[in-house]
Nucleic acid binder design. Structure first.
Lengths: 245, 245
DNA sequence: GAATGAAACATGTATATACATGCCATGTCA
DNA sequence: TGACATGGCATGTATATACATGTTTCATTC
């Protein structure tokens, strides 16, 4: 009676399952202290390295908290936040298959804009700023309006880029060593300009994804406006790493 | 000259940095095959277990792809998606400090609803379904409308719960062993009912967060409607795990 | 030429051992 | 009583070794 399951999975997985089962059943409550590695070695009949690997992985997955010299504890539940994936709508369209066709048009491009938004986005110190407005199409109907503020000093060859042919987020992701990314998701009623460009009624809802990237200084801010007439939405499934008992 | 940095970090970290540096510099391109573990053992002068741990962690972090019996390869860039955190608005309000006050009112509660949405949400086989409608307040003004469809058979004591006092997502997260979660973020114009409950103009934009959880059978579906008059938004910063070169 | 089998090689896991590092309680000495 | 040293115990890392498992290659055999 080793207290470990007899499935075909590796030993360290069985140890992880054993620990998670004890957490899930409430036997080891939040912030409770787990038996030491050596205790588990004795009670489970596996080597310390195996126990250690199991506990280390559970720690990196957020289930445990370990303090050298002190012990191992049950971590508080996974915060009040959940990870989700926000897909790049462009690729979503592209991946949808044959009859759909993605396209873009470049509406305008100014290298020295100075609107209020530029100051608000903390670009006031790093001019010039490249400002461009792009509309993405699927089958001749507009689906997304993209507003980009890019610091060309920090993005190599940005100005030479044919940036109607590649998803902006992809390009920035590939070319810049990202140190930090900020996303904000919000919803706004479409303004007159946006409504015209997206062929949608004014004041209809727009889903907005703000994306701002740094590498120390600000690299770029991209706002994408999507008309969500129940046609598109962001999100996907999230499968927790630990399988419950 | 071991090709490894001479910092104070552990050996396996140095190996990881070595691999990431080779990927970042382009020396090992996307999908390229890495030297075998034994090659790295010989060229770096560390044991195979150490190399193995470094490569295994880089694999679980998404930088590498390994196939037993074949080799180790540079994984394609982190997909077209980005991880963000979606905070629980309720906690956001609560954490905002003293002068703000969160509250809820329960509008209605039916145990045997059978609207079309219930069928659409795949609840048709597991009746009864608890349906409730809750409005969250901050300082007497409504900020969020929550629509819940919960399968009481799968959530212990759900019907006994004073569920105006606790954030629903939190409760479900604590009580059910989640196997899968699906999120959808969308934006809709407020309908008449929603506009009235949220004290907002009809057809103004609502940010909607759909959340659906399973443990095999469907446990719950929660839709939260938030009036985003530039007052609230979802999102937060994401700090990539690998430091760029 | 096609099928079979074996060797070579890759990653995956498990163990024993050793030492490093950090925290804490205990006891000793001033 | 306070400061300090020490030993015990916890986790953290590194290594050598062994075997398991999956893939490819190549030679043998039919």
């Amino acid at each position: 009676m080793s207290a470990l399951s007899d499935s075909a999975s590796p030993l360290y997985e069985k140890v992880k399952d054993f620990v998670l089962a004890n957490i899930g059943s409430g036997k080891w409550a939040q912030n409770a202290r787990l038996p030491s590695e050596n205790d588990l070695v004795n009670s489970l009949g596996v080597s310390r390295m195996t126990v250690h690997r199991a506990l280390r992985e559970l720690t990196s997955e957020g289930h445990l908290r370990r303090v050298q010299g002190v012990g191992t504890f049950v971590a508080p539940p996974k915060a009040q936040s959940t990870l989700i994936e926000v897909s790049n709508i462009i690729n979503e369209i592209r991946d949808r298959g044959g009859k759909h066709r993605a396209g873009v048009i470049l509406l305008e491009r100014v290298e020295h804009p100075a609107p209020a938004i530029v100051r608000a986005f903390e670009f006031d110190r790093v001019k010039p700023v490249d400002h461009s407005l792009v509309v993405h199409f699927e089958n001749d109907s507009p689906v997304q309006l993209e507003e980009r503020y890019v610091n060309p000093a920090l993005v190599p060859h940005y100005l030479d880029q044919d940036f109607t042919s590649i998803a902006t987020l992809e390009y920035l992701q590939r070319c810049t060593p990202l140190t930090e990314v900020e996303h904000l998701i919000s919803a706004v009623p479409a303004g007159a300009e946006q409504a015209r460009l997206l062929h949608m009624p004014e004041r209809d809802s727009c889903l907005v994804l703000h994306r701002k990237t740094w590498t120390g200084a600000t690299v770029a801010t991209v706002n994408t406006f999507t008309h969500v007439g129940s046609r598109y939405s962001l999100g996907s499934r999230y499968r927790p790493t630990h399988k419950p008992a």
